[in-house]
Design a protein around this nucleic acid. Sequence first.
DNA 1: CTGTAATAGTTGTATTTGTAACTAACAAGC
DNA 2: GCTTGTTAGTTACAAATACAACTATTACAG
Lengths: 149, 149
Amino acid sequence: METDEFQLQQFLPYLLNQAAEASSLEFQQIYKDRYGMLRTEWRVLFHLGLYGRLTASDIGQRARMHKTKISRAVHRLNERRFVDRTRNEDDRRVEYLSLTRQGQAAYNDLRAVARRYDAALMDALDPAEAEVLRRALLKLSEAGPGGFT
Amino acid sequence: METDEFQLQQFLPYLLNQAAEASSLEFQQIYKDRYGMLRTEWRVLFHLGLYGRLTASDIGQRARMHKTKISRAVHRLNERRFVDRTRNEDDRRVEYLSLTRQGQAAYNDLRAVARRYDAALMDALDPAEAEVLRRALLKLSEAGPGGFT
DNA sequence: CTGTAATAGTTGTATTTGTAACTAACAAGC
DNA sequence: GCTTGTTAGTTACAAATACAACTATTACAG
């Protein structure tokens, strides 16, 4: 048995994807069932709930989401009266997005669920471990491997 | 400023997804450019490279991947002569999958890249942190939050 | 002004994915 | 044997995504 054998379970991108998928599954089910939202829509909703009025570009930067995804998510959220769109009259290219009353209610509800969900996930970890995990994930989110290719 | 304000950056599924996406991007580019593979195909390739001959169901269990994804990945990998399919004559429902010489070569190449890539990712973390991260990710991969809904 | 480039956001089309229904082969009860 | 159920894998169709090309508006150089 070679000791330097490559282990798939040790490959960080794989591990991260597995953990991300496993940990998202049940929560995804909740916003889908309750509000018929897709992941992109949920993300837009949460950004607006957290930061208030934003443009599509703002959300794109913060969430690292492509503008076409955002455009379509916003369209659907607006259609279902979760989001208001108001054009900036000083620069008619940009449009401000904000939650409607209904959007705010959905956000409040899902935020509460998310808090409990997060706590339940954390139960699998001890507190020190959880803290290190968060820090590490933030670092990894910043960028990929430094100038790999 | 409320101290119990929900923070999106603290929500584990979100953090995990961000980190997974960021950390997969460049590697994804490599197997796509060099071998025209999709993520599902890469995963099948790696499972066969690591564990040798497997059935589609075996891969599905190990990788937590749906059978239709595997079916399609195997089809394409076979088409491009990366994997061989041989029917089990004792039970003609099952089919054994294994790497061709060409598949083995691709696996060897990508495994080497993955090792270096992983090392580069790890450089952003200190060793103790990396160890905790791996353990935590494995725990989270096992299951979602315990009986949440 | 006018032409060129940049920015915000949208739409079109080809890929990919998810879900359910399907075929084929085996197993087990009667 | 024949029905019923189960398992392995595939296929069909709807939904979602990626990528490129597009419109509309502003900026700015000459």
